[in-house]
Lab assay of single mutants.
Amino acid sequence: MKVIFLKDVKGKGKKGEIKNVADGYARNFLFKQGLAIEATPANLKALE
């Protein structure tokens, strides 16, 4: 799953980066902790 990092995550990505991560890791950790959001077209446009 492609995500946009909202904060730096050690070993995974830095704020503003778009990367592929495992679906479960994204849903169960990154999204719940507020560290990333899904890289949807609307979210990508908002990032610009």
Rank of each mutant, 00 (worst) to 15 (best):
I4K: 03
P41R: 09
A22H: 13
L44T: 06
A39D: 02
E17G: 02
L35M: 08
D8I: 03
K32G: 09
L6I: 11
Q33V: 10
F31I: 14
V21L: 05
G34P: 00
K45H: 13
A46P: 05
L44S: 04
V9H: 03
L30N: 00
M1D: 03
G16E: 02
F31D: 03
K14M: 12
L44N: 04
A42I: 09
A22L: 11
L6E: 01
P41M: 11
K12G: 13
K15L: 08
A42D: 14
L6D: 00
F31E: 07
A42P: 09
D8Q: 04
L44V: 13
M1V: 13
V9F: 04
A36S: 01
F5P: 00
K2Y: 15
I37V: 13
V9S: 02
E48S: 13
D23K: 13
K14Q: 11
G24L: 11
K7A: 12
E17F: 03
A46T: 12
K10V: 13
K7V: 15
D23N: 13
N43D: 06
G24S: 15
L47A: 08
A26S: 06
K45F: 08
T40H: 06
A26H: 06
M1K: 07
K7D: 07
K7P: 01
K14A: 09
A36L: 02
L35G: 02
G16H: 09
K32E: 14
N43H: 08
L6V: 10
A22M: 11
A36N: 00
F31K: 03
R27Q: 11
A36R: 00
V21T: 03
Q33R: 13
G24Q: 13
I18N: 01
G11L: 05
K12F: 15
D23Q: 10
F31V: 10
K32A: 14
F29I: 15
K12T: 14
A26K: 03
L35A: 06
I4Q: 02
K14W: 08
Q33I: 09
E38F: 04
K19L: 11
K15S: 09
F31H: 02
G34H: 07
L6S: 02
F29V: 14
K12V: 15
L44Y: 03
A42L: 09
K15H: 07
K14E: 08
G16D: 05
I37R: 05
K12A: 15
V3Q: 00
R27P: 04
E48P: 07
L6M: 08
R27N: 10
G24T: 12
T40Q: 03
L30D: 01
V9K: 01
L44K: 06
K19M: 12
K19A: 10
D23S: 15
I37P: 00
P41W: 08
L6Q: 03
K32M: 13
D8L: 03
A26G: 05
L35V: 05
Y25H: 06
N43Y: 06
A42K: 09
T40R: 03
F29P: 04
N28Q: 10
K10E: 14
G16W: 11
L44M: 11
K15G: 04
M1T: 14
A39Q: 02
A46L: 15
I18S: 03
E38L: 09
R27V: 12
G34R: 07
E38R: 08
I4T: 01
N20I: 15
G24E: 15
F31L: 12
D8E: 08
A42E: 15
K32D: 12
I18Y: 03
T40W: 04
A22S: 15
N20W: 15
N43K: 06
V21P: 00
F5T: 01
L35K: 04
K10S: 11
N20M: 15
K14P: 01
K12N: 09
M1Y: 07
F5V: 00
L30R: 00
A22Q: 14
K2R: 14
K15V: 10
A22D: 15
E38M: 09
K7W: 08
A22N: 14
N43M: 08
Q33P: 01
Q33T: 10
K45V: 11
G13L: 02
E48A: 11
E38H: 06
K32Q: 11
A22P: 15
R27A: 08
A42S: 11
G16N: 07
G24W: 15
A46S: 12
V21S: 02
A39L: 05
A36Y: 00
N28I: 07
T40L: 04
K45N: 10
G13E: 02
K2T: 12
F31S: 03
K15E: 08
N28E: 14
L47P: 05
I37F: 03
G34V: 03
K14N: 10
K2A: 10
M1L: 15
R27I: 15
K7T: 12
E38D: 04
V3Y: 00
K2N: 10
E38W: 06
G24V: 12
A39T: 02
P41V: 11
K19F: 06
K10Y: 13
V3H: 00
N20D: 14
K10N: 12
A22K: 12
E48Q: 13
K15F: 05
Q33A: 11
G34M: 08
I4L: 09
G24H: 14
N43Q: 06
V3N: 00
K19Y: 07
L44I: 15
G16L: 05
I18D: 01
L44Q: 07
F5R: 00
K2G: 06
K32I: 14
K2H: 09
F29M: 09
A42N: 11
T40A: 04
K19H: 10
P41H: 10
N20T: 15
K45G: 08
L47W: 14
Q33D: 07
K19S: 08
A22R: 12
I18P: 01
K10W: 13
D23G: 11
V9M: 03
I18L: 06
L47K: 05
G24Y: 14
F31Y: 07
N43S: 07
D8W: 07
L6Y: 01
P41Q: 11
A22Y: 09
V3L: 04
K15Y: 06
G13W: 12
N28A: 10
V3A: 01
L30P: 02
D23V: 14
P41T: 09
K15D: 03
P41D: 13
L35E: 03
A36H: 00
A36P: 01
G13P: 00
K10H: 13
D23W: 11
N28V: 06
R27T: 10
I4S: 01
Y25S: 05
N20L: 15
V21A: 03
L35F: 12
K45I: 14
K15W: 04
I37E: 05
